[in-house]
Nucleic acid binder design. Structure first.
Length: 365
DNA sequence: CGACGTGTAAC
DNA sequence: CCTTTTACACGTCG
């Protein structure tokens, strides 16, 4: 059965939201920053609007670097701190809109979603196009935001299509157009192919999507292993059988940059206390408990290390998070003695079967 | 196989 | 000199 999949991406989401909140920002370069709090301007740019991108101020670069670029341009650039709670509220309202149009909705991130619309469009690309226009209209009316939409026979191609024309774009790739559409793209545009994979492919003279599509899987197995090798060639051919599914989170983590580098457990105890509280809040919101708890450390050389422990039974107790992570932290400190720059906690092996629900399930039986 | 740690990637 | 959060694949160990 041929599916019709839609991928929707909100345009420069955080920056657009801030422009709505402060209309005087319109037409000015705006950069949304994650300040780490170590020094005045330490941290990175999370999102910027198109005006700022023209100056080279884009996601991922250090805030200090962005300020230099702003200085050089002679323009007034607006730097704002992220306000995740606010963005999340707006995201939730938009996802509700999408939910009403889709057979199945898969939220891929705060500003992205996949919709399986096969049933609602009765398999018609024309109907899907109309639906996309309706969705754009509704998001513009209710939230004053634009989005870019891709429509294609699978998630892989839909995602590339939504990126093809932005902002406020709509790109439809019919099944018989997939091959041609992909062949013109650089490898980097394929979801899941990052710098390391590109480097490995270039080592065997593959540098285009077309080249990868023609490649014999056997040739890739020594580099990537059978599983990933097959996946890579499928990707280049526009083949993707993965289904759109409502995602439930499998882990919850929180990590932060320390005010000062440290290898002293006494400095970390209050940090553990804070992070444990943060995780507890998220667990409550999702009504989940956990069986595994890990600490995540990033040392001064920016090398990451994780260490975890799985409990006998699922729990949601903050004190357990604190106690176990304190033990794990001591263990890592004894092992290396390296100073940490960043520190985080993660809970996984999540269990959504709360006592209440179990009881009602019993009664149902 | 479950548990654990690392690497890669996307946002 | 550099954010945060999540996911998944893979190797390894017992």
């Amino acid at each position: 059965m041929q599916r019709i999949i839609m991928h929707i991406d909100l345009d420069q989401f955080y920056a657009a939201v801030e422009e709505n909140r402060k209309p005087e920002l319109k037409d000015k370069p705006v950069a949304i920053c994650v300040y780490s709090g170590r020094t005045e301007d330490s941290g990175a740019i999370s999102t910027s609007n198109y005006t700022a991108r023209k100056l080279g101020i884009r996601a991922g670069i250090p805030i200090s670097h962005a300020k230099n670029l702003a200085e050089k341009s002679g323009q007034e650039v607006i730097f704002l701190p992220v306000d995740m709670d606010y963005y999340r509220d707006i995201s939730e309202r938009i996802m509700e809109i999408l939910e009403n149009h889709a057979d199945i909705l898969e939220q891929a991130s705060i500003d992205e979603a996949y919709l399986d619309v096969t049933e609602k469009t009765k398999g018609s690309y024309n109907a899907a196009e109309n639906m996309a226009s309706k969705i754009k209209e509704e998001i513009r009316e209710k939230e004053n935001l634009t989005c870019s939409i891709g429509i294609a026979p699978n998630k892989l191609v839909a995602k590339i299509a939504s990126d093809y024309n932005k902002p406020d774009g709509l790109t439809i790739i019919m099944p018989d157009e997939v091959e041609k559409f992909l062949s013109s793209l650089p490898l980097r545009k394929l979801h899941g192919i990052g710098p390391k994979t590109i480097e490995a492919l270039e080592s065997i003279e593959i540098s285009t999507v077309a080249g990868l599509a023609e490649c014999d899987v056997q040739k890739l197995i020594p580099l990537f292993g059978g599983n990933k090798a097959r996946l890579l060639v499928d990707k280049a051919r526009g083949i993707d059988y993965s289904s759109v599914e409502e995602k439930v989170s499998k882990q919850i983590s929180r990590i932060l940059t320390l005010k000062n580098d440290t290898n002293n457990i006494d400095d970390l105890i209050p940090v553990i206390g804070y992070l444990a509280g943060e995780l507890k809040k998220k667990l409550e919101k999702k009504k989940a408990s956990f069986k595994t708890i890990s600490i995540i450390t990033i040392d001064t050389a920016l090398d990451m290390q994780t260490k975890g422990r799985t409990l006998e039974n699922a729990t949601n107790s903050t004190s357990t998070i604190r106690e176990v992570s304190t033990m794990l932290t001591k263990e890592i400190l004894e092992g290396s003695g390296k100073k940490f720059r960043r520190f985080g906690l993660r809970v996984s092996s999540l269990d959504y079967g709360t006592k209440k629900e179990q009881k009602s399930l019993m009664e149902f039986k």
